[in-house]
Amino acid sequence: MARSWQLWLSPRPLRRTETPVEPRMLSADDASLYEFLYEADGRLVVKETHYASNKQVLQGASGPPLHIHLRQTEHFQVLQGTLAAVKNEKEVRLTKDDGILTIEPGVRHRFWADSSINSTHGDLVFTVWAEPQDVERGFDENFLRNIVGYLRDCAQQSITPSLFQIALFGWAGDTLLICPPFYVPLWMLKAAQYVAGHVVGYHLLG
């Protein structure tokens, strides 16, 4: 049971969506659909559909903020529409004819649907996966379900997401989610997220 000072410091949704049993889930404001697909060898591939008519998608806000994966390489392959991305401050566009976009470990990046194109050409659909997949606390289904479900619950209950909770998700998923748009050494970002997420979020705020 959270205490009043914990709720004041880090507001949290009163009701939490149960982890769905279906192999898919919607993001906040129904902006995008996540489908968890597993290959024959057990490899997780996430299929994302960003709906062109959704307000969040039209505003370029359906993707995550700047973040860094510490030990995994992330791969994107577009099936329909145009994916916009920033990779170490360089903006790129990706369609199904452009092959696979690779984001190496330690690279600051974000991505979103290019609404200027997709609004007239349909939804953005792409697959994303991370390698290697056997790292502890990495980019996996649990990480995505937790953070996407939390942000959806916050949006539905008009609650500003807690920085400490976001940092805890990042720490648990080996992903730096406290990531400013300017250069900061990785060791400093890791230290800040560890303190905010593990020390304050996990131990102090519960």
Score class of each variant (00 low, 15 high):
Ala2Lys: 12
Trp5Asp: 06
Pro13Thr: 09
Arg16Tyr: 13
Arg16Val: 09
Thr17Pro: 03
Thr19Tyr: 03
Val21Gln: 14
Glu22Trp: 03
Pro23Cys: 05
Met25Leu: 14
Met25Ala: 08
Met25Gln: 09
Ala28Asp: 07
Ala28Gln: 09
Leu37Gln: 11
Tyr38His: 08
Glu39Arg: 09
Ala40Gly: 10
Ala40Val: 06
Gly42Val: 02
Leu44Ser: 07
Leu44Asp: 01
Val46Ser: 00
Glu48Arg: 06
Tyr51Gln: 10
Ser53Ile: 13
Ser53Glu: 15
Gln56Phe: 06
Gln56Ser: 15
Leu58Gly: 12
Gln59Val: 05
Gly60Gln: 05
Ala61His: 10
Ser62Phe: 12
Ile68Lys: 05
His69Glu: 09
Thr73Lys: 15
Thr73Tyr: 12
Phe76Asn: 01
Gln80Phe: 07
Gln80Cys: 10
Ala84Lys: 00
Ala84Phe: 05
Ala85Phe: 10
Ala85Glu: 01
Glu89Pro: 06
Leu94Phe: 06
Leu94Glu: 04
Asp97Cys: 00
Asp97His: 11
Asp98Arg: 02
Gly99Thr: 08
Thr102Val: 15
Thr102Pro: 13
Val107His: 06
His109Phe: 15
Phe111Gly: 00
Asp114Arg: 04
Ser115Trp: 06
Ser116Thr: 10
Thr120Asn: 11
His121Ser: 11
His121Ile: 09
Gly122Asp: 13
Asp123Thr: 14
Asp123Phe: 11
Thr127Asn: 15
Ala130Cys: 15
Gln133Gly: 15
Leu144His: 00
Val148Met: 02
Leu151Pro: 00
Ala155Pro: 05
Ala155Lys: 13
Gln156Glu: 15
Phe164Val: 00
Ile166Ser: 02
Ala167Asn: 01
Ala167Leu: 02
Gly173Gln: 01
Leu177Glu: 04
Phe182Arg: 10
Ala191Tyr: 06
Val195Glu: 02
Gly201Leu: 00
Tyr202His: 13
Gly206Asp: 07
Gly206Gln: 05
